[in-house]
Amino acid sequence: MLARKYDNYAWEEQQQTEVSQPVRRVKINTDPYRRLRSRLMIFAAVVLGTYLLTVFRSEAMVQYGNQLVNLQQQEAQLIDKNNELKIEVEQLKGPERIIGLAEQRLGMSVARSNIYVKAAGQKNPGNSFTVAAK
């Protein structure tokens, strides 16, 4: 019986020493692919973000291209209009028009003695205009 008591004593002592030590909980990895999935999700998000950025950028470039084409068309129209206006100004500045307006509206006539004609052969280099003969 003594041996049994000693045996119980040793057994109780062993249980107390085991209980007194802190129990470490080992984290069991229930999902071995969790890290891989999280990395794949991050990679997919980066790829999707890059794709969306590229789509928005290309849309902006198309809009700027359309605006450029419209401005070039408008420039061509304005250049044509400017050329037409230059021709009209030259026609309005012409001496025939001025003489016609002076004769019709003001009743003036051209004095033949005051007509100056540019000489073809320059005999006098200081004065290139000579009075026209009557």
Rank of each mutant, 00 (worst) to 15 (best):
V55K: 00
N114Q: 14
L53E: 01
F56P: 00
G126I: 08
E59A: 03
Q104P: 00
K93R: 09
G65R: 10
N124Q: 04
D80Y: 01
G49C: 05
Q16N: 14
L68P: 01
R105Y: 10
K27I: 06
V62H: 06
E75R: 14
R25V: 08
Q122T: 15
T30N: 14
S58Y: 08
L92I: 13
P95F: 10
Y9K: 12
Y9L: 15
V69C: 05
V26A: 13
G49F: 03
L2T: 12
N114I: 15
L52P: 01
R97L: 00
G126N: 14
Q73A: 13
Q104S: 11
L85Q: 15
Q63F: 02
R35N: 10
Y33E: 10
L78V: 06
V62P: 00
Q73I: 09
K5C: 10
M61A: 13
Q21D: 09
Q74E: 15
S58I: 03
A44Y: 02
S128Q: 07
I28F: 09
I115N: 04
A102K: 10
K93P: 00
A60F: 04
G65T: 10
V55M: 02
N114A: 04
N83M: 01
K118L: 12
E103L: 06
N124D: 09
N8S: 05
L92R: 09
M108F: 09
G100V: 04
G126C: 03
Y51H: 08
A102R: 07
N29K: 14
N124E: 07
N124I: 08
S109Y: 09
E84R: 15
N82D: 12
N66A: 10
S58C: 02
R37A: 05
V46G: 00
E88S: 12
K81G: 07
R39C: 07
I98L: 11
R39H: 07
Q21A: 13
V55I: 11
Q73G: 08
L52S: 08
A76Q: 14
E103P: 00
E90V: 02
D7P: 04
W11M: 06
V23F: 11
